[in-house]
């Protein structure tokens, strides 16, 4: 259904409609299905009923049979490896397993029972019910229908205060929300180039950034945003806004909570400062 051998996520351009998460292959093979997500570690012995594939303690009585079972890591008795074999015999195996960090119990169980398995995946980017393809050979998880965007977030500080702009009704996303200077990274640009360009276009300032922050990846609906943060400083700058914003305000970072901001902004500012 999907093309083989896609390039890893970090080389892909913005706007594609298949998100590919690059992890590490633990058990070979490809499996696809709906994601069943557990937020806590899973012990197959006692935690999953082999005759049905039902997860113990889940009120909705969901089964992992034929599904892609995503959980942080395995735990509990080493006999858990044999539970996966019993599930194979009874036809209740999951189509694939995704972990944050593989440990030996689930890893050996997956190899023995021939369940494709990938680890080192950020489970925060998955949602219950997502349709995904797990490739244990290439160590990837493909999410058809999820687009991926690279954007910059330029935090401009004047002393203790940062510039907050209200997004106009003419922009494509997050209309009416408060944000920093931001914009899409175009195909032929580096994020650093975009950051300086956006500062010039949106508020008319020609500045070099002081610091580049850690890229933050967040999922919002069917979009995954890779936000590249940049810190700029200026003293009493003359701010001229364009059509993308309706107003602006200088606020202390601790007061961000009083504004309806774009997702993740407070965390980005905290990390930069």
């Amino acid at each position: 259904m999907l093309p083989e051998g896609r390039v890893p996520i970090y080389r892909r351009i913005a706007g594609d409609d298949i998100l590919i998460l690059k992890g590490r292959g633990i058990s070979k093979g490809r499996g696809e299905g709906e994601v069943v997500l557990s937020e806590s570690p899973v012990s197959f012995l006692g935690g999953v009923e082999p005759s049905t594939g039902n997860i113990a303690g889940r009120e909705d009585g969901r089964s992992v049979k034929g599904k892609v079972f995503a959980f942080p890591q395995g735990k509990g008795s080493t006999v858990g490896s044999y539970v996966l074999l019993e599930m194979r015999r009874r036809g209740t195996l999951p189509a694939a397993i995704i972990n944050s960090v593989a440990e030996p119990i689930v890893a050996t169980g997956s190899v023995m029972a021939r369940v494709p398995m990938v680890d080192r995946i950020d489970l925060g980017l998955l949602r219950e019910g997502d349709l995904v393809v797990v490739d244990g050979d290439s160590g990837t998880v493909e999410l058809p229908g999820v687009r991926e965007n690279h954007v910059v977030s330029c935090v401009l500080m004047d002393g203790e205060k940062m510039l907050l702009l209200k997004r106009s009704s003419e922009v494509g996303t997050f209309r009416g929300y408060w944000a920093s200077v931001s914009g899409f990274v175009e195909e032929d640009e580096t994020p650093a180039e975009t950051a300086c360009k956006e500062l010039q276009e949106e508020i008319g300032l020609d500045l070099m950034f002081e610091k580049e922050g850690r890229t933050v990846t967040v999922r919002d609906g069917c979009t995954v945003w890779h936000v590249h943060p940049y810190l700029f400083r200026a003293t009493r700058p003359r701010v001229v806004i364009d059509w993308e914003h309706t107003e602006y305000s200088w606020v202390r970072p601790q007061d961000l909570k009083d504004f309806q901001t774009v997702p993740g902004l407070a965390g980005i500012v905290r990390d930069l400062l």
Partner: peptide
């Protein structure tokens, strides 16, 4: 090797 008792490895273990 461990994993010998039928009590611990069961039918799944036998198939493997």
């Amino acid at each position: 090797l461990s994993g010998v008792s039928y009590k611990t490895i069961g039918e799944g273990g036998i198939s493997f």
